[in-house]
Simulated assay, not measured.
Amino acid sequence: MTDPRLRASDADRQRVVADLERHTAAGRLSLDEFTTRVDAVLAARTHGDLGHLTSDLPAEAQPSADARHLLIAFALAAVVVALLAVIISVYR
């Protein structure tokens, strides 16, 4: 988050609720903790208020470079297979 004194928008609150949902699904929060924090998110006025509600939770990991490379390789392989299927169907 940026300056903790800045007012939070509805989009900021929705993003924090989505983060809390992911942490609950991962087992880091109980349903009671989730409910309590969501109520606090909806009442939050500043970025600092929102930051305090997730400060004890780990940041979500970004996809690693290896995962991105694997995804690109898979996409290229799918394109090659599709092109081969088209070429084979044309020449039959």
Rank of each mutant, 00 (worst) to 15 (best):
R37C: 10
H52T: 11
R5M: 08
A85D: 03
L31T: 13
S89W: 00
A43M: 13
T36N: 09
G48M: 06
T24Q: 15
A67T: 11
A44R: 01
S89H: 02
H52L: 13
H23F: 11
L84M: 10
S55N: 06
S64R: 08
L6K: 15
L20K: 11
A61D: 06
G48A: 07
L53T: 08
F34Q: 00
D3M: 00
S64P: 11
S89I: 14
A77V: 14
M1F: 09
R45S: 10
D32T: 11
R5G: 13
P58E: 07
A67W: 05
A77H: 02
A78E: 02
V86G: 04
L71H: 06
A73M: 07
V17K: 10
D3L: 02
T54K: 01
D32N: 09
D3I: 05
P4V: 12
L6W: 02
R7W: 09
R13F: 12
D39A: 15
R7F: 14
L50G: 03
R28T: 09
S64C: 07
L83G: 00
S64H: 02
H47K: 14
T46I: 10
T2F: 09
F34D: 04
L84H: 01
P4I: 13
A26P: 07
V81Y: 04
P63T: 05
A65I: 14
I72E: 04
A44D: 05
R37F: 13
R7H: 14
R7N: 08
R22H: 08
L31R: 13
R7P: 10
G51L: 07
A59K: 06
H23P: 10
E60H: 08
